[in-house]
C-alpha cells in the first residue's frame, strides 16, 4: 500500500518544518500528520516521511517505535485509553479497565472485529485529581463510574 501526503498535509508539514533549524526535528510533527491521514504508521509511511524531510528512514523508525502514541498497527475508530496509574487505581481505575475489557470483549491493544473500538491501558495522563479517567481518541472523560462509562460507550456510534 503506497502512501503519499496530501497537498494540504504537505503544506502543514512545511509550516512545522519552519519552526526548527534542522529537518530531523520535524519528524515528530510529520509522524503525527501521517498518522492522522493514514490511521497508523507503515513502512511506506515511514519511507514517505523520510523522503519528504530528506532524512534517513532509520531515524523515522527509531522515533516511531520509541513513543507510545505512534501506532504501527491499526487502532479502532474509537481508541479508548484507560489510565490505571496510582491516582486512578486508588479511585477505581482497574474496575473501569476490567469493565471496559469485559464489555468490549477485547484485551490491551486489541481491536473489536468491526474495527470500532480498541483499548489501551495507559500510564498517567495528567488527570489525577479527576480520577478515574479514560481518554477516547483526543478527548478526556474524568470522574468516572461504571455507569458513566457505559453511557459514554453507548453514545459512541
Amino acid at each position: 500500500m503506497s502512501f503519499k501526503f496530501t497537498e494540504e498535509n504537505l503544506k502543514r508539514l512545511e509550516n512545522e518544518r519552519k519552526k526548527y533549524p534542522e529537518s530531523l526535528a520535524a519528524v515528530m510533527p510529520a509522524i503525527y500528520i501521517a498518522q492522522e491521514q493514514n490511521g497508523y504508521i507503515t513502512n511506506e509511511v515511514m519511507t514517505e516521511i523520510a523522503d519528504v524531510l530528506g532524512i534517513d528512514k532509520v531515524d523515522v523508525l527509531g522515533v516511531v517505535t520509541f513513543y507510545t502514541m505512534f501506532h504501527t498497527k491499526p487502532v479502532g475508530k474509537y481508541h479508548i485509553q484507560v489510565c490505571t496509574n496510582v491516582s486512578c487505581m486508588l479511585r477505581g481505575g482497574y474496575e473501569i479497565w476490567e469493565y471496559i475489557k469485559s464489555k468490549l470483549g477485547i484485551d490491551n491493544m486489541e481491536v473489536t472485529p468491526d474495527g470500532k473500538f480498541s483499548i489501551e491501558e495507559v500510564e498517567c495522563m495528567g488527570a489525577c485529581g479527576y480520577a478515574p479517567m479514560i481518554a477516547i481518541n483526543e478527548d478526556y472523560y474524568e470522574n468516572l463510574t461504571k455507569e458513566k462509562v457505559e453511557e459514554i460507550l453507548n453514545s459512541l456510534k
Partner: peptide, 29 residues
C-alpha cells in the same frame, strides 16, 4: 522572539531536560 509548541508523543522520560531536548531535535528521548 518566537514561541513554538512541540508536541510530545507519550514518553515519561521526555520530562527529563536532556531527553526533552533530544525529543525536540527529532530523536528518541
Amino acid at each position: 522572539c518566537d514561541l513554538y509548541i512541540h508536541k510530545g508523543a507519550g514518553a515519561y522520560i521526555c520530562g527529563e531536560e536532556s531527553s526533552l531536548m533530544n525529543s525536540i531535535e527529532g530523536k528518541r528521548g
